[in-house]
């Protein structure tokens, strides 16, 4: 696999505070990565370092094959960090022309990218007249001007209203569908779960997990069941070899699978035992459950 970004033992200290500690991971072409972590876990600092705006304390990183300088590599990267930053007195087109000059790309793409994010009608309005959602969309258009090898998004939906969040997500999905590598930092887990194939989980500047999302949620899932006679049901489930942990709450029994089992198969088995279910659902743990599980062990 072609590597886009490699980070080795990266450390950043702000005075006595260690924001990033001994972090290593790599980004491969074509995948959609999520960097997960609570606020203050070092996500933005890590991105700041690889984007040339924060100085590292120790460790190193390199873009692509490591033969280009960071600022030249960044011309092939599209990135938005936290708030969208543009010249408030310039129009969308003027701002994007400036970005084209910096990235050394022709100006032809400006209209196309503005159309992609739905800002073509407002292209001649100054940046200061834009709403937050429009500013964020302009930032995405700007990041896409060079048709980047990788798109880096840091909390792209922060502070947006539900409609704005939806628009941004649609755009990200559209971009991901084109095969662009994406690195998405967020603390919104469902957001990451919806679009990412890989995750890196950070907490207090350390890496807790990195790998595929579906491998992280590697369990066989769990059943939520209830019946008229819950005790008989629970007794049956406990003696069945496919089930591990079983708990009961509010009349619903939650049974975790230790090996694969179909919902229809379970239904048939129970019916043969004379247990008729009033509720049956099979679910997978969400990324949120797993995230809380992973970060829980590390507290203190």
């Amino acid at each position: 696999m072609e590597k886009i970004l490699t980070i080795n033992n990266l450390t950043k200290k702000f005075g006595h505070v260690t924001a990033v500690k001994d972090l290593s991971f790599s980004i491969e072409k074509g995948n959609v990565y999520g960097i997960l972590g609570p606020n203050g876990s070092g996500k933005s600092t890590t991105l700041g370092i690889v984007l040339n705006v924060v100085n590292r304390t120790a460790g190193d990183f390199h873009w692509f094959d490591g033969n280009t300088t960071t600022h030249d590599a960044l011309k092939k990267v599209g990135a938005i960090i936290e708030r969208p930053n543009f010249y408030p007195y310039m129009t969308a087109v003027q701002n994007l022309s400036l970005v084209c000059k910096i990235k050394d790309v022709p100006r032809e793409k400006i209209e196309e990218k503005l159309e992609l994010v739905g800002l073509l009608e407002r292209k001649n309005s100054t940046f200061r007249t834009y709403s937050l959602g429009m500013k964020q969309r302009l930032a995405i258009a700007s990041a896409l001007l060079n048709d980047p090898e990788i798109l880096i998004l840091d909390e792209p939906t922060n502070g947006l209203d539900p409609q704005g969040i939806h628009q941004i997500r649609q755009i990200i999905k559209k971009i991901a569908a084109n095969g662009t590598t994406i690195l998405l930092a967020s603390h919104l887990l469902d957001e990451v779960e919806k679009v990412c194939s890989h995750v890196v989980i950070l907490r207090k500047g350390r890496k807790l997990y990195s790998g595929r999302v579906d491998e992280m949620i590697a369990s066989h899932g769990f059943f939520e069941v209830s019946a008229g006679d819950n005790e008989k049901l629970e007794a049956f489930l406990q003696q069945h070899k496919a089930f591990g942990k079983i708990s009961q709450e509010n009349g619903i029994i939650t049974a975790f699978l230790s090996e694969p089992l179909d919902a229809s198969e379970l239904n048939r088995l129970l019916f043969e035992q004379g247990i008729a279910l009033s509720h049956l659902s099979k679910r997978k743990e969400s990324l949120e459950d797993m995230f809380l599980e992973v970060t829980k062990d590390q507290s203190n």
């Binding site: 960044l74 960090i81 930053n85 543009f86 970005v99 990235k103 050394d104």
Partner: peptide, 11 residues
């Protein structure tokens, strides 16, 4: 305007 940061990120 924090545009310095954006300039650097842009390359």
């Amino acid at each position: 305007n924090k545009t310095l940061k954006q300039n650097l990120i842009d390359g």
